[in-house]
Design a protein around this nucleic acid. Sequence first.
RNA 1: GCGCCAGUAGCUCAGCUGGAUAGAGCACCGGACUUCUAAUCCGACGGUCGCAGGUUCGAAUCCUGCCUGGCGCGCCA
Length: 549
Amino acid sequence: MTPETLAEKVLSATRAAFAELGLDAAALPAETTVERPRNPEHGDYASTIVLQVAKKAGTDPRALAQRIASGLTEVDGVAKVDIAGPGFLNITLDAAAAGEIAGRIVAAGTAYGYNESMKGAHVNLEFVSANPTGPVHAGGTRWAAVGDALARVMRSSGAKVGSEYYFNDAGAQIDRFANSLLARAKGEPTPEDGYGGAYVDEIAAEVLRRHPGALDAADPREVFRTAGVELMFAEIKATLADFGTHFDVYFNEKELHDRGKLDDAVERLSELGHIFEADGAVWLRTTAFGDDKDRVLKKSDGSWTYFAADCAYYLDKRERGFDKLVLMLGADHHGYVGRMQAISQAFGDEPGTLEILIGQMVNLLRDGRPVRMSKRAGTVVTLNDIVEAIGVDATRYALTRYSADSSIDLDIDLWTKHGNDNPVYYVQYAHARIAGVLRNAGDLGVDSGDAYDASLLSHPKEKELLKALAEFPAVIASAAELREPHRIARYAEDLAGAYHRFYTDCRVLPYPGESISETGRARLWLVSATRVVLANALGLLGVSAPERM
RNA sequence: GCGCCAGUAGCUCAGCUGGAUAGAGCACCGGACUUCUAAUCCGACGGUCGCAGGUUCGAAUCCUGCCUGGCGCGCCA
């Protein structure tokens, strides 16, 4: 029996109790959940439904609880229902009912955890979107890990997800980048407002290698702009690919300009009555939608602002059929929330159509001291730097195990340690241990068979492990709904702990000279199920599940 | 000044869509390997959940005010 099924039983038993007691069913919620209590004395699962509805229905909680409990006791698979405190329902399952989940998990394999909590949603997920004027830095790395994980989590919840990287290949930053490349190629110092990292020299040299006559071209700056951006972007894409982050679409801002999408968007906004002209510029009245101040779309010199492209891009996403747009920004860009939401509303979309997730800053510590991050200063810490220092798995895990609302002090020394200071090892080790057991089972010629006796999985550590396994689909659903992939990492740690504790107390394989017992066979199923879930959880985070460590 | 985020054990952080005695890892102390990986497990220690009010049967969780720290408030991108 899964927690979801049990929750439905609780609700229907409550409904029946209401009918018997002649209470108003309007007080009942549409759905309910059961919790996994920390204290084993509180049963396998606990429901607080009585506490939630008794007052609303104007009835005595204990009496209501009594009715629900007697109804629940009738349910196949429920061994016992206790009433505790002000009306908690503490439910204990039959070992067989709890244990059958292992077989289901093994049968489902990589599909276990999939749920349909977001079925029907068509979500555009935009993240990283770093300008191609330099390598992906630490902040972008956070989103490369978290955004990618969120995309997987949402897909595992039934959503149709398009992940997208917005490539700002137009505008003043690119001009500065081109100027910097040109200056360095000529052996001149970096311009005042230019980019100064060592990578600029490398790119400039590579442009010269590919276009030997670049400096003598009719418009050298244009050659460096085009070739430089191309090289930079290729490097970014390769870096992200090595990092395991995939984007369905790399969207070029330039394309919006070339296709006249900015004009289209402004015209549309104008028709909707949200455009005005002042001081020789064209404005969007974002204050009508809660923004601090109105925003310029077209400057008095006739050029577009970045914001105008944002409007066009927003409209383009909507026209491509996405009904939910999620945008992941760094905390240093949170000032954009008001104007971005104004775009959404100006186009007439419902609040909530555009969802902006703000991720707090990532600080890098080396030797206990902050490492400066600045593309321009050239002391930039890049995605590649971090990966080189601590590896892809540790980087992805370190960045996804914390809430995006919290800033991260990423201590390179700590995450470099290959010891148990490092949470990713705790989880991976559990998987490697399982792989070892299953390898040994194969070597011993032990077969788990086609079926097992689930009622034999009655040891407390087995029951804890089963409950943890059963939780996985709900964890994915909540991570998707709340846009919080860190829940997957925390869950994986919880599950790994349950396995380690099980492993300490429960022998799986037969001792030398003995043949496998029925309990051993059942445990083999449990172990296989755990491996599936650990692998699936790590997979959602883009972290490998090693066979050996 | 205004806005966003954070403040929970010595440290790093979960928990926050209100529920039972507030959890984990690390650190420190004490235990467990001649049999499936000790990168593990068990125990001990450790908290006025920033402060003050409020809402309620019940608040770390919701509301208000305040304090501290981070980030942001351009016809920059």
